[in-house]
Simulated assay, not measured.
Amino acid sequence: MKHRLYVLSLLALSGLSAAAQADTLLIERTQEPAVAQPARGLSMAEVEARFGAPQQKLDPRGGQKRQWPTINRWVYPDYVVYFEKNKVIDVVAHKASANEVGPKPPIR
């Protein structure tokens, strides 16, 4: 019985360790954007005036119900801009850096 409890404790601790390492990896990838990006709250017209026309304007999503606002997405070379109605709500980079090839391997 003690042996089983010991093994279960070790498994639980190793799981916590792996989760902590995964959080660290995500934190390491979070940096200031290398390329200027639209700020939250800018209108579609302001984004297009400052950053030029997007490569692609994706079809809107949402809007089926009043509580589900329409979300528009514009694709630029380095990021995607998300608009709720006419205002920027988020910008998502395609990669954290030009050299990124994927998540860093866990530290052991």
Rank of each mutant, 00 (worst) to 15 (best):
H3N: 11
S9N: 10
S9P: 01
S9K: 08
L11V: 03
L11F: 07
L11I: 05
S17Y: 14
A18C: 09
A18V: 09
Q21H: 08
T24K: 07
L25D: 08
L26C: 05
I27V: 07
E28Y: 03
T30F: 10
T30I: 05
Q31D: 07
V35Q: 05
V35D: 06
A36Y: 00
Q37P: 06
P38T: 02
S43Y: 00
E46F: 00
V47G: 12
E48A: 15
E48P: 14
A49V: 05
R50L: 15
G52V: 01
A53P: 13
P54E: 00
Q56N: 15
K57A: 15
L58G: 06
L58V: 04
R61P: 05
G63H: 13
W68V: 03
W68I: 01
P69F: 04
N72Q: 13
R73N: 12
R73H: 11
W74V: 01
Y76A: 07
P77V: 01
P77C: 02
V80F: 01
V81I: 06
Y82K: 00
Y82E: 11
Y82F: 11
F83K: 01
K85T: 13
K85A: 14
K87I: 01
K87S: 11
D90I: 00
V91D: 04
A93P: 13
H94P: 01
K95L: 13
K95W: 08
A96N: 11
S97E: 11
S97G: 12
A98K: 12
N99M: 05
E100Y: 14
E100N: 09
V101M: 11
V101Y: 06
P105D: 08
P106Q: 12
I107Q: 11
